[in-house]
Computed example of a mutant assay.
Amino acid sequence: MTLTLTATVAAVLLAVGYYIECAVFPWGKCLKCEGNGKKMSPTGKHWRPCRRCKGTGKRLRVGRRVWNWLQRRHRDAT
Rank of each mutant, 00 (worst) to 15 (best):
V16R: 02
V16Y: 02
V16L: 13
G17K: 15
G17P: 01
G17E: 02
G17L: 12
G17Q: 12
G17W: 00
G17V: 07
G17S: 13
Y18G: 13
Y18L: 14
Y18D: 09
Y18I: 14
Y18C: 13
Y18P: 03
Y19K: 08
Y19M: 07
Y19H: 12
Y19F: 15
Y19Q: 08
Y19A: 14
Y19E: 13
I20K: 15
I20W: 08
I20C: 08
I20Q: 10
I20R: 15
E21C: 02
E21L: 08
C22I: 03
A23N: 01
A23P: 00
V24M: 02
V24I: 15
V24D: 00
F25E: 06
F25H: 09
F25M: 04
P26N: 10
P26K: 04
W27T: 07
W27S: 03
W27P: 00
G28K: 02
G28C: 04
G28T: 06
G28A: 09
G28I: 04
G28R: 01
K29N: 04
K29G: 01
C30T: 01
C30W: 01
C30S: 03
C30H: 01
L31I: 13
L31H: 10
K32G: 00
C33G: 01
C33K: 07
C33N: 00
C33F: 01
E34C: 15
E34I: 10
E34T: 15
E34W: 13
E34V: 15
E34K: 14
E34P: 05
E34Q: 15
E34G: 15
G35S: 09
G35I: 02
N36H: 11
N36S: 15
G37W: 04
G37C: 10
G37D: 03
K38W: 14
K38E: 09
K39E: 11
K39G: 02
K39V: 14
M40L: 10
S41C: 11
S41P: 07
S41D: 12
S41M: 03
S41I: 05
S41N: 13
P42C: 02
T43A: 10
T43I: 07
T43P: 04
T43E: 06
T43H: 07
T43S: 11
T43V: 06
G44A: 07
G44C: 04
G44H: 06
G44K: 06
K45E: 13
K45G: 08
K45H: 13
K45R: 14
H46Y: 11
H46P: 01
H46D: 06
W47P: 01
W47N: 05
R48S: 13
P49Y: 10
P49M: 08
C50E: 00
C50F: 04
C50S: 09
C50V: 12
C50Y: 02
C50K: 04
R51C: 09
R51K: 10
R51Y: 10
R51G: 15
R51I: 03
R52F: 12
R52S: 06
C53L: 00
C53K: 00
C53Y: 00
K54V: 04
G55W: 04
G55P: 03
G55V: 11
G55S: 10
